[in-house]
């Protein structure tokens, strides 16, 4: 039955993907992108991968729609039609597609127990997580400790992406500021956001603290249930973005000012690195948490908690900075 469900969802996914490519109205493409993400999360869930599905839920459904729309507000809604047929591009795409299809013949069977992923290092993780860390969620153990270097790298990729976006969008065009102010009458703060929409505003205000609380739960409960720093950072960012949508950007920047976003971005990455360095100072190796406490198991748990906190801080800081960079551009 799982196979049947999976095939059905993948068929829908294919239809949506083709429709996204075919759509020349970019708003429609963004909406279909939302559906794509919902379908993808259901498929991940069906395949028993709740951590990935939670990431898809937090990033795909909330944040990417918001960021796409913020980008779309800066540009035209319709895509320019290309009437030129490019033979070279067609050849390249067809060749790649054929190669990929050819490669799938070597793919392992669905659920094959002798597949390399199930006989290589995976069983070792499953057997030894209890012994070394004593936490139920093996995914968190692998991400946080066994593969701590990879996660550190990922975190710095996120950090670098944030810096890149800020370099591109964060500066204000000085010359045009006066011209823009005369063209578009500056909104007073009372009309920003959705202040004049009573029902969405009331419901939204109720939900903001709940989303933040849920984000903290995902952050600190990541060792016992699906979740962790990445998901929590995205959920917390979504909560603050909801506040910004409701009350206007100025109010949101008063709650979480720019310097705090920078501190979150850099502080999270720094915290992760520091945990590694402190481990070295205490006589272990870089990112070896066992030396952080008297008992190696407690040390591992403490290390994982700290680095997940660092990941959450950086991810939420980066996502919020990107959002504010786009939203501030909107005014020019």
């Amino acid at each position: 039955m799982t196979v049947f469900f999976g095939v059905f969802l993948l068929t829908l996914l294919l239809i949506v993907a083709i429709a996204i490519v075919r759509a020349d109205n970019l708003f429609v493409a963004v909406m279909l992108g939302g559906i794509f993400s919902l379908l993808m999360a259901t498929i991940f869930f069906l395949l028993d991968a709740p951590d990935v599905a939670l990431t898809e839920a937090a990033v795909g459904a909330g944040i990417s729609t918001v960021l796409y729309l913020a980008a779309l507000a800066l540009t035209a809604e319709r895509e320019k039609r290309h009437t030129v047929h490019q033979i070279k591009a067609l050849v390249v795409v067809t060749t790649t597609a054929l190669l990929v299809i050819f490669a799938t013949f070597d793919n392992v069977q669905f659920g094959d127990p002798t597949a390399p992923v199930h006989v290589h290092v995976g069983p070792w993780y499953l057997e030894n997580t209890q012994r070394y860390m004593d936490i139920p969620n093996v995914v968190t153990a692998i991400l946080g400790s066994f593969r701590g270097y990879d996660t550190l790298g990922e975190l710095f990729v996120v950090f670098t992406a944030g810096i890149g976006v800020l370099f591109l969008l964060g500066t204000r065009p000085k010359k045009d500021t006066e011209a823009a102010e005369t063209l578009i009458p500056q909104q007073s703060e009372t009309s920003e956001g959705l202040r004049n929409y009573l029902i969405p505003r009331l419901t939204g205000r109720l939900l903001v603290p709940i989303i933040l609380l849920f984000g903290l739960y995902v952050q600190f409960h990541g060792e016992y249930s699906p979740g962790g720093g990445f998901q929590a950072g995205a959920i917390i960012a979504a909560g603050i973005i909801l506040y910004a949508l409701l009350e206007g950007e100025t109010a949101a920047l008063r709650v979480v000012p720019q310097w705090m976003l920078m501190a979150l971005m850099a502080g999270g990455a720094l915290l992760y690195g520091m945990v590694g360095v402190v481990g070295m100072l205490l006589g272990g190796q870089f990112l070896d948490y066992s030396v952080l406490a008297d008992n190696p198991v407690t040390g591992q748990q403490l290390g994982i908690l700290l680095i997940e906190l660092g990941v959450g801080m950086t991810v939420s800081g980066v996502l919020l900075s990107i959002f504010h960079a786009f939203a501030a551009r909107d005014k020019y």
Partner: peptide, 26 residues
């Protein structure tokens, strides 16, 4: 245990819809 995921969706979907509303308004 995996109900957390459904809860995330019930909360986060709303953000997307409100973003669409703000987009229409701007």
């Amino acid at each position: 245990d995996f109900l957390d995921l459904a809860m995330a969706y019930a909360l986060i979907n709303f953000v997307g819809v409100l973003a669409v509303l703000v987009f229409f308004r701007t």
